[in-house]
């Protein structure tokens, strides 16, 4: 069989291509909404469109996975791959959904653009780290480069810490407006969730390649 495509391969390739497309769309949505949080402009309708498209694509991946199971009864690395592809599609759809939630927060509460400087710069920094994680998860899916995996784990820990530190700092200060407090807390929460889903993507890829389940 060496050199000959297996009959399941076109299906796996199609899923892989769809996931790559989803990853890039999700990255665009998160990077766009991060600008919205700190700058005076709105991309809400565009992000809504992307988020909806990501959900449809995740549904498509799920349908395709079921088709491959029914038709080819995949096992071993094939089975782990398609199971993980379904999960990753969901993770990418979540990126889009959180981007939409952040965009809504920016529209409703003006993001953090009128907040104290420390909040704006804190969210900018956390946003850059989160966006980096999104990028790393997409690249790791494509390249399976172990160095990327190490970076994902390290940044995830940093983001978790930033999330809790932010809540502590906000609770300590009494000069923040309610609008800024609501907006910033929601945004750091969404960023922390996005980072978590980037970590799930990383764990799914480790499962595909090694069979090891990380918790």
């Amino acid at each position: 069989m060496r050199g000959v495509k297996r009959i399941i391969d076109p299906g796996l390739e199609e899923l892989s291509a769809t996931l790559n497309k989803m990853g890039e769309l999700a990255y665009y949505a998160v990077s766009t909404t991060l600008r919205e949080c700190v700058e005076d402009w709105s991309a809400y309708s565009k992000i809504r469109e992307i988020s909806d498209a990501l959900i449809l694509m995740a549904d498509y991946v799920e349908d395709k996975v079921f088709e491959l199971i029914v038709r080819f009864q995949p096992v071993a690395s094939d089975l782990r791959t398609i199971k993980s592809y379904m999960k990753i599609a969901y993770d990418f759809a979540r990126f889009g959904r959180y981007a939409l939630d952040m965009s809504y927060t920016s529209q409703k509460f003006h993001g953090v653009r009128n907040c104290e400087a420390w909040i704006t710069s804190y969210i900018k920094e956390m946003g850059e780290k989160t966006l980096n994680m999104v990028r790393l998860s997409i690249d790791f899916l494509r390249d399976r480069n172990p160095q990327l995996a190490e970076k994902i784990v390290q940044i995830e820990e940093e983001i978790d810490k930033m999330y809790f530190d932010f809540l502590d700092e906000l609770a300590r200060r009494s000069d923040t407006t309610i609008r800024c407090a609501v907006s910033s807390v929601l945004i750091v929460r969404y960023l922390e969730r996005i980072a978590d889903h980037a970590t799930y993507v990383y764990k799914s890829i480790i499962y595909i390649t090694t069979g090891q389940r990380l918790f």
Binding site: M1, R6, V75, A76, S77, L79, R80, G211
Partner: peptide
């Protein structure tokens, strides 16, 4: 064996890379 074969030959046989 079917979810996570340890041996590369098993994996290749099960996934139809040879047989």
């Amino acid at each position: 064996i079917f979810e996570n074969p340890k041996h590369e030959l098993t994996r290749k046989y099960l996934t139809g890379e040879f047989g």
